[in-house]
Nucleic acid binder design. Structure first.
Lengths: 338, 338
DNA sequence: GGTGCCGATGCACACCTGTGCAAAGGGTTT
DNA sequence: AAACCCTTTGCACAGGTGTGCATCGGCACC
């Protein structure tokens, strides 16, 4: 048998109070006497009453929904971040709406959603820069948090990896491993987070007295791209003893691309990645990596979102997240006495 | 400047028609003359009008929101499935609300959501069986689709891997590799999808004349669990030439756990996993696997959901998804002339 | 006892849309 | 010309809730 879902009016009738009393019972900070609240709660329990959030959101002009815009979810760094973000959002009473993003998608979809659902906010971890989205969000007063993206609007919050520190850590790892001739491996297509890490890495390489020999690219920033980059590296016969890859996924592909070539890691070639995804720690790879703490990033997103919701018109925060170096076998040359 | 979001009434005034005409213009299958529709569209464009889905959902008693309940999103099979599901849902006009699920979470959260947001439906890919959820969903007429879970209610749709076929394929892969003495490796905690695959695998092992030597376990069904299982396998000195792992993530850990032990894969020991996650194809592992086609699963979920929405009171469909064997190096013993 | 204050309560409006119903209008058939 | 049908349109109600405002009752204080 299908129960018709109970109304606030139904509860009010059963409890012998006005509907306002019911509403106030379920509204934080409203003024209700303990006795009325008790009566209401009892009646609500009996009827299985639940506040209708659609109606609540309609009148409050704000829903508990938060858009989670994400591309490349098959990348485990992204998957881990989405997992953490959705957990933290739910813990705070929000509802994350997952909006998968593909290269070349119309930004209209997100803008539509912001208005159609009175979103509480949106968190964007996609790599393609949706400039219009930022402007529209700001114009309509929808809190927006961008992760690892170039800053586009002073009313939009940003959570970015400290690219300078990250690039420096990567260079330092290769330096400590005794490297002199460095190769940077990454994708061809420009991307804000990747490009800024690359710039600061190259600067640190120079500062530490190492030489940037060459840059190899390999299509997308994933495993296949890394394999292709390794192939290019081998074919060009570049004389290098250290490689920094744009991210871990790519670095794992690079390592796989070297298999069977006779080049030994780390003895002949030290390798460093970025992100510290879980696969980097697996024995088959044992990859040294510049760790991005997904928990810290997610936490920063929550802070930024709360800030925007509390005061949407103030200047938006820009939070820098720290990176740490996780030393593993792929840069252990010195320890091996090489 | 913050635009007050335009009303249907605003659009009606600007277009010189009634509000009903505006509503009908944006309602599929409603009766509006082409001229009125044109006038309305023009006015809507000018005001940047968008239908408020909260109000629409409120009156239609049904929102476009679909709950996506998922645990272990750090498992790349799950991440890939969630990615596909959310893409397909969005393509059909739904909005996936991500509800991360942890072992031991209260099912109340999902039930609340079903009623508070007038969900169009829910897709559950979590492993822990929320029996109450199924009953409540059926009682309130909310379409529910369970993926790889035991059947709990005839009004709930199921999308399950054909476990018999999958178990048979795994056994066949080991048989073709020339194996005789088989070990099953998996987690200790019971799980419907894993357990049913195990049962049919063991039956096929017997049918093909091979011997099930032993079962080793290793905590959770992830990489760490696989490594621990390999350790146990080595310590117990089990005489086996073939291993079937409960899933790929676990199998990769098992392979990593064997490194340095002197056991060569596939020469001394053939290994088969299940799921065919992307990492299985990486050269470092080159794992033979029983493939679960995530696209087929996601497509089946969409069909099941559509079926439930169209006719919530009919008997729910049970869709079996096919598995295929992806042969790779970890069972290539015969080809090597071993 | 009168006055002022404060918390609790109910009324009524607002949030924004979909749709049944009746009416209107135009075209076709008898 | 009347009768009929079909498409289009507007009115008004429904969906379920939050909250400002006025009212009311009780309590403290002078």
């Amino acid at each position: 048998m299908i129960h018709k879902h109970a109304n606030a009016t139904d509860v009010a009738n059963l409890a012998g109070v006005s509907r306002s009393a019911v509403s106030r019972t379920f509204t934080e900070g409203a003024s209700v006497s303990p006795e009325t609240r008790a009566k209401v709660m009892e009646a609500a329990e009996e009827l299985g009453y639940r506040v209708n959030f659609l109606a609540r959101s309609l009148i409050r002009q704000r829903s508990e929904l938060v858009a989670l815009v994400v591309s490349d979810m098959d990348h485990s760094f992204r998957a881990a971040l989405v997992d953490l973000l959705s957990r933290k959002l739910v813990a705070k009473g929000f509802r994350p709406v997952l909006l998968p993003w593909s290269e070349g998608d119309e930004p209209r979809q997100l803008i539509d959603m912001m208005l159609q659902y009175n979103l509480s906010g949106a968190i964007v971890t996609s790599d393609t820069p949706p400039a219009e989205i930022a402007a529209d969000a700001a114009r309509h007063g929808v809190p927006l948090v961008l992760v690892n993206k170039a800053s586009v609007d002073s009313r939009v919050a940003h959570v970015n990896q400290d690219a300078d520190a990250a690039g420096h850590l990567a260079a330092m790892a290769l330096f400590e491993a005794g490297c002199q001739n460095i190769v940077y491996a990454g994708q061809a297509r420009p991307s804000f987070s990747i490009d800024s890490r690359r710039a600061s890495f190259l600067m640190a390489v120079a500062t530490l007295g190492m030489t940037h020999r060459s840059t190899v690219t390999g299509g997308a920033q994933n495993h296949a791209g890394g394999m292709r980059a390794a192939q290019a590296f081998l074919e060009q016969g570049i004389a290098a003893d250290g490689v920094y890859c744009c991210n871990d996924f790519f670095a794992l592909g690079f390592l796989d691309g070297l298999r069977g070539s006779g080049i030994r890691v780390p003895h002949d070639l030290a390798i460093v990645g970025c992100d510290d995804i879980v696969e980097a720690s697996w024995p088959a790879y044992d990859l040294t990596s510049v760790r991005q703490d997904t928990d810290e990033i997610a936490e920063a997103c929550m802070r930024a979102l709360a800030d925007r919701i509390a005061d949407p018109h103030s200047i938006a925060p820009r939070i820098l997240t720290e990176s740490t170096l996780v030393r593993r076998g792929s840069t252990a040359r010195k320890l091996l006495g090489g």
